[in-house]
């Protein structure tokens, strides 16, 4: 296969990966951040302790995290159908990617929020701040570098999950490597795809690290 033959394939696949990872990252933050806040807040020493709620949330999150992504992707097909009207294609892949990443990201959010000192939270309470104020103006800003680090790990995980999206016709770089590199013995394309994936992951990680460092004033 020549470079001019590979090039359009690579661009298309990279675009599909970007779309899948981009949208699922957005939705993961949208659902995972509040879930992480609830996980941290409902704990015993948390802002709004609720042991029963926490146990249920913890269980759901753990189930989500213990399913291999490839299994989860098949298992949530009915949900995907309801949400997107289809079960194959790039858009359809966003649903399992999000469902797979939300519990993962929520745990990272929980950990980042726990890192915020108890004394800082209490100081805010002593100043008469309510819980919403404390979450919005103390916990999240103080944990921001940790949240960005968690988001970076999540994006990298989503890139790797998205490689399996070929199974449901999501396309993307992983799918390209499998279809051409493995099934059609196009070793060159396989190698190039792998290189592109490595570069993309490296870029995401470097960017995430830089932003986290920039935000940290510790």
């Amino acid at each position: 296969m020549t470079w001019s033959e590979m090039s359009p394939l690579l661009w298309e696949a990279t675009g599909q990966t970007a779309v899948m990872v981009g949208w699922s990252t957005l939705f993961t933050v949208l659902f995972g951040l509040p879930l992480g806040v609830c996980l941290a807040g409902t704990d015993r020493g948390g802002l709004f302790p609720a042991p029963a709620v926490r146990r249920v949330l913890g269980l759901v999150v753990n189930v989500g995290r213990s399913l291999p992504f490839i299994v989860l992707m098949i298992a949530v097909i009915p949900v995907t159908r309801v949400l997107t009207g289809t079960t194959i294609g790039t858009a359809a892949a966003v649903v399992p990617l999000t469902i797979g990443a939300v519990p993962f990201f929520a745990r990272l959010v929980e950990t980042a929020l726990r890192e915020v000192g108890r004394d800082v939270v209490q100081a805010a309470e002593a100043m008469g701040a309510g819980r919403v104020t404390i979450v919005a103006r103390v916990l999240l800003p103080e944990a921001l570098p940790g949240l960005v680090a968690g988001l970076t790990v999540t994006v990298v995980t989503l890139i790797s999950y998205s490689a399996m999206a070929g199974v449901i016709g999501g396309g993307g770089l992983g799918d390209l490597a499998v279809r051409y590199g493995y099934q059609r013995f196009e070793t060159t394309l396989m190698v190039v795809t792998v290189v592109v994936l490595v570069v993309v992951v490296q870029l995401a990680q470097t960017l995430g690290d830089a932003v986290a460092r920039r935000l940290s004033h510790r």
Binding site: G117, D119, V120, Q122, A123, E125, A126, M127, G128, A129, G130, V138, P141, E142, L144, L215, H217, R218
Partner: peptide, 21 residues
């Protein structure tokens, strides 16, 4: 109580400042 606390200042051994601000 929250309103009353606004009228009570407190300082801490380890300062308890917001590192992000």
């Amino acid at each position: 109580l929250r309103r009353a606390r606004q009228r009570i200042g407190m300082i801490h051994q380890h300062f308890a400042l917001l590192s992000s601000r």
